[in-house]
Computed example of a mutant assay.
Amino acid sequence: MTGDTAVINDDLREKILSDPGIILEDRDVMGALVAANEQVMGDNIVDLRGIAMERLEARLDRLEETHRNVIAAAYENLAGMNQIHRAVLRLLDPSEFESFLENLNEVLPEILRIDAMQLVLESAVSADDPAVQRLSKVLTVAEPGFIEGYLTQGRNIPVRQVTLRQVQPDSQIIYGQDAEWIRSEGCLKLDLGKGRLPGMLVLGSEDPHQFKPAHGTDLLTFFAGVFERAMRRWLS
């Protein structure tokens, strides 16, 4: 090819002519071609097709980003569901109540990837009772009405089964000396059956973003339901 026509490798030219779709599918090549075309037309001509193409590319970028976010959220939800299932199976293993509670100290926090777990039971029994002291690492005994007060912080708001938030100033009551490094928590209110005072399972994390009010609560609601049913069995 001679004259004013640019020389293109014969093999490349033949490949493009035989399958022009390969050009259309390559966004970088198409962008370069459109830019070259705009240079030829000059500044006084508005290329509506080029503008439309830019808008379509921007829209495609947004759709791809949305797609990636949806896929990431799906994987995250699947991982969370697997964690909850493993934790539930662990709840069903113990044949003694103390073994059941001991799972709250190391095994379940490891499965759920949290840093602390504490069971709070409202009771008239003194916290100085020897049986309570023996389980103090995972069990907190509080006066009746403590759980609602802890969840609402004195505000006139409904008490939900699952509350996700950053830790409150009085969290030392729950976590003891560990309160200084707990930054967020999930509080699961437990219905322990007719005639019994409520309980609460508290999940604590060093990560301030692990438990946030905007997060979904379906999986933790399910876990709370399983936990409270297991507790009823031990308390019967």
Rank of each mutant, 00 (worst) to 15 (best):
L78W: 08
V70E: 11
R55H: 14
R59C: 05
L101T: 00
G80V: 02
S99G: 06
E102L: 03
I71V: 15
H67K: 14
I84L: 07
N77D: 12
E98A: 07
H67R: 14
E96S: 07
A79G: 06
L135M: 13
A116I: 05
I71L: 15
A124F: 13
M81D: 07
E106S: 09
T66A: 12
V141Q: 04
R90T: 13
E106G: 02
H67T: 09
E64S: 13
N105M: 05
L135P: 01
E110F: 03
L135C: 07
N77P: 01
R55L: 13
L108K: 01
R90N: 07
P109G: 00
E96N: 06
L121M: 13
I71N: 05
L104V: 00
M117C: 14
D129N: 15
E76D: 13
H85Y: 12
R59Q: 15
L78V: 11
V132T: 11
E64G: 03
D61H: 12
A79T: 13
R62F: 09
R134P: 01
P94H: 02
H67A: 13
A73C: 02
V120N: 04
S95A: 10
I114G: 01
L135S: 06
N105F: 04
A87S: 12
P94R: 01
V120W: 05
F97I: 01
A116V: 04
V141D: 03
E96T: 11
I84N: 03
A131Q: 10
D129M: 06
L91Y: 03
V141L: 10
S126K: 11
L91R: 04
S99M: 03
I111K: 03
D61S: 13
P130K: 08
L92R: 07
T140V: 15
R86N: 08
L121W: 03
L60Y: 10
Y75F: 14
P94I: 01
A127N: 14
L104E: 00
E106W: 05
N77H: 11
P130Q: 09
L104F: 08
E96H: 08
E76M: 08
A87D: 02
L78Q: 14
V125R: 12
Q133I: 10
S136D: 15
N105C: 02
E102S: 06
S123F: 06
V138T: 11
D115W: 05
S99L: 01
N105L: 10
A74W: 05
K137H: 07
V125E: 09
S136C: 11
P94L: 02
T140C: 12
N82W: 08
N82R: 15
V125M: 11
I111F: 04
V70M: 11
V125A: 08
K137C: 02
L91G: 02
R55T: 11
D128S: 15
L119A: 06
G80K: 06
S99N: 06
D61M: 14
E122L: 07
R134V: 03
D93Q: 08
S99Y: 00
R68I: 09
P130V: 10
P109Q: 01
R59M: 13
N103R: 05
A72C: 04
E122N: 09
E110H: 08
R86H: 10
A73D: 13
A131N: 10
L139Y: 02
D128E: 15
